[in-house]
């Protein structure tokens, strides 16, 4: 019995040490990537190529989900608000929930599962097939050539994707409530414009998306670079990317919201 307890404690200790090591490796990797991103900034076409793969190809899923999220928000908001006779406030509801929360968070979650997993799988497979080692043999730094462009491409794409998500979502809400249900168009827009503040709501939303973009792509490139060079390792790393970045998005969203919207009503 005491032996079991010792084994259990040892297991806990092992895990803690392992995760601290991992955290250290991640910070070291992140610093190294930032230091070497000057080289990839000078070869900007590498970043443009990655923006095409992470940003442009994510557009369809972002736009379609944004449209449907906005339409559902419009329907549900109308359903509840018309009980109180204030269905013209549905524009405010759709715009505020999209710009403040749903736009940044849902766009980042979709981005993590569509682009983040792809980045991890690509870098992990490059490592497993020893392409990264081959690059190093040719005196090409894999962090500057492979990792940093993907990171910056994700950081640049994320705010644009979230802005498109919000804009399309508001259009979806407009379609459902104004065009289909017949809420007054003028009060839909004017109530929205009265309630949504540029500095307070829109800029804060953009700040959120920038933070999420950094978090998601940093996790994705690190998981790929740190993956065990086997088929199993790459699949595990891809799963971890999606899980960790989703949790990171939700946790960071709470922290950011607490700082941004505290005490103001």
């Amino acid at each position: 019995m005491p032996r079991r307890i010792v084994l259990g404690i040892r297991g806990v200790g092992h895990r803690v040490i392992e995760s601290v090591w991992r955290l250290g490796r991640a910070s070291h990797f992140f610093m190294l990537m930032l230091l070497k991103s000057g080289i990839s900034m000078r070869r900007f076409h590498l970043i443009i190529r990655e923006i095409y793969f992470t940003g442009v190809l994510s557009l369809i899923i972002i736009v379609v989900s944004g449209l449907f999220v906005g339409m559902v928000l419009g329907l549900q908001g109308y359903e509840t608000l018309q009980k109180y006779g204030s269905e013209s406030a549905v524009g405010t509801l759709v715009a505020l929930s999209l710009v403040r929360e749903l736009g940044p968070v849902v766009a980042a979650l979709l981005f993590a599962s569509r682009a983040g997993s792809a980045i991890t799988a690509e870098i992990g497979l490059m490592k497993a097939t020893e392409q990264l080692a081959a690059m190093e043999m040719m005196a090409v730094d894999p962090i500057a050539r492979v990792v940093a462009p993907r990171f910056w491409a994700g950081v640049i794409s994320m705010p644009f994707l979230a802005a498109m998500f919000s804009a399309v979502g508001i259009f979806g809400g407009y379609l459902v409530t104004v065009v289909l249900i017949g809420v007054d168009e003028g009060s839909f827009w004017s109530q929205m414009q009265n309630a949504v503040d540029f500095r307070y709501d829109i800029v804060n939303g953009v700040i959120k998306t920038c933070v999420f973009g950094v978090a998601v792509t940093a996790i994705a490139v690190f998981e790929g670079y740190d993956a065990p060079p086997t088929a199993e390792g790459v699949s595990g790393a891809t799963t971890r990317t999606v899980v960790t970045s989703s949790l990171a998005i939700l946790g960071l969203d709470f922290v950011l919201t607490a700082f941004m919207f505290r005490g103001m009503s």
């Binding site: 442009v56 644009f160 802005a163 414009q193 949504v196 503040d197 540029f198 709501d201 829109i202």
Partner: peptide, 25 residues
């Protein structure tokens, strides 16, 4: 690819402008 990325960035900036001018105050 450059063309697509250019269109993407333009659409993103356009969406931000729509949010600022049409949705915001």
């Amino acid at each position: 690819m450059d063309l697509w990325v250019g269109l993407f960035v333009a659409a993103g900036i356009g969406a931000l402008l729509v949010l600022a001018l049409k949705v915001g105050n």
